[in-house]
Amino acid sequence: MAETITVRGEGISLDLLLWRRYGVRGQALVEQALELNPGISALGAILPLGTVIILPDLPPVPATPPVRVVSLFG
């Protein structure tokens, strides 16, 4: 479910919000966040105080198959 937040600090950009919420994986969500918030790009790179932003859901991490480890020393 998408999360709605309000910008409460100065110097906050959309990609910074995504980084703070999701870490490194948030970088891939910038396009989705722009789609969820039409007209947000017209506000400029730095979001004004009080701007309401809808953050997209973080996609699930794909399951990685187990890796077989070979030991050379025993």
Rank of each mutant, 00 (worst) to 15 (best):
A2Q: 11
A2P: 11
E3N: 15
P48L: 06
G39A: 06
T51N: 12
L47D: 01
L72S: 01
V52G: 10
P59R: 05
S41P: 06
P56N: 07
E10L: 14
I46C: 01
L43T: 06
R68K: 10
Y22V: 08
M1V: 15
W19I: 03
Q27A: 11
G26M: 11
L36K: 10
R8D: 15
I5N: 12
G11Q: 07
I54K: 07
S41L: 15
L58A: 05
R21K: 01
P48V: 01
L34Q: 11
S41R: 13
S41Q: 13
G9H: 14
Y22E: 12
G11L: 00
E31Y: 02
G50F: 04
R8W: 01
I5G: 14
V70F: 11
G74P: 02
L17H: 00
R68P: 00
G44D: 06
I40A: 06
I54V: 15
P56M: 07
T4K: 15
I40C: 00
L36Y: 10
T4L: 10
T64W: 08
D15C: 06
G9T: 11
L17E: 03
G9N: 15
I54D: 14
R25C: 13
L34D: 02
A45V: 10
E31R: 11
R68S: 05
T64E: 12
G39E: 07
P59G: 04
I12W: 07
G50R: 09
D57R: 10
T6L: 09
I46D: 10
T64D: 02
I5V: 15
V61A: 13
R25L: 14
Y22P: 04
Q32P: 00
T6G: 11
P62V: 06
V30Q: 06
G44L: 02
L72M: 10
R20K: 15
F73L: 08
E31V: 03
A33P: 05
Q32V: 01
S13W: 09
A33Q: 07
I40N: 03
W19P: 05
L58P: 06
A42N: 14
V52M: 13
L29A: 03
R20I: 03
A45L: 08
I12M: 03
A28Y: 04
R68C: 05
Q32K: 10
Q27S: 14
N37A: 12
N37H: 08
V7Q: 05
V67N: 10
R8G: 12
V52Y: 12
L49I: 02
R8N: 13
S41C: 05
T64G: 00
L58D: 01
E35N: 00
E31I: 07
E10N: 15
A45N: 05
E10T: 13
P65V: 12
L47G: 00
P62E: 01
I40H: 10
S13F: 07
Y22T: 09
P56I: 01
A2C: 09
T64Y: 08
L36M: 15
L58R: 04
L58W: 09
L58V: 07
L18A: 01
T4C: 13
A42R: 15
L55A: 06
V7P: 08
A33V: 02
V24Y: 11
S13R: 12
P59F: 04
P66K: 11
A45G: 10
P66N: 11
T6E: 15
L29V: 11
Q27F: 11
W19M: 07
A45M: 00
P60W: 04
F73Q: 05
S71A: 14
S13D: 12
T4F: 10
L29C: 01
R8P: 09
